[in-house]
Amino acid sequence: MQLKTQSRPRVLTVEVMEDRIDAATAIQFKERMRDITRTGDQRVVLDLARVQFLDSSGLGAIVAVKKMLGPDRPLELSGLTPTVEKVFRLTRMDSIFTIHPSVEVAVSHATGT
């Protein structure tokens, strides 16, 4: 599970470099996210622009990461592709995440510029 991170003063962006987060990789994704967010307190933007497929295990892992970060360190999402967006919409998990059209928009929101 390849994740590319970029740390800014007020936002940590995590770009998923895989085209799937599924039952085969969900646990690995969760563990990598735990390692990446172990230090720091910036808000976290998870960029899913490359992810073409997310199943319920992958969705559960993303929710678990949000829970792990706690209420003071929001997890926001960006770049949902159509099938990924559908999973969030059908499970109504689109209502518990702030979802940005792109990582650039997410970053400008997060820094308030």
Binding site: S56, L59, G60, A61, V63, A64, L90, T91
Partner: peptide, 19 residues
């Protein structure tokens, strides 16, 4: 759909039945 605020599972059959 699960009732908790941040459910980590229980989405599968909802997705299957919806589609």
């Amino acid at each position: 759909l699960p009732k908790d605020d941040l459910p980590e599972g229980g989405f599968g059959w909802h997705l299957i039945r919806t589609m």
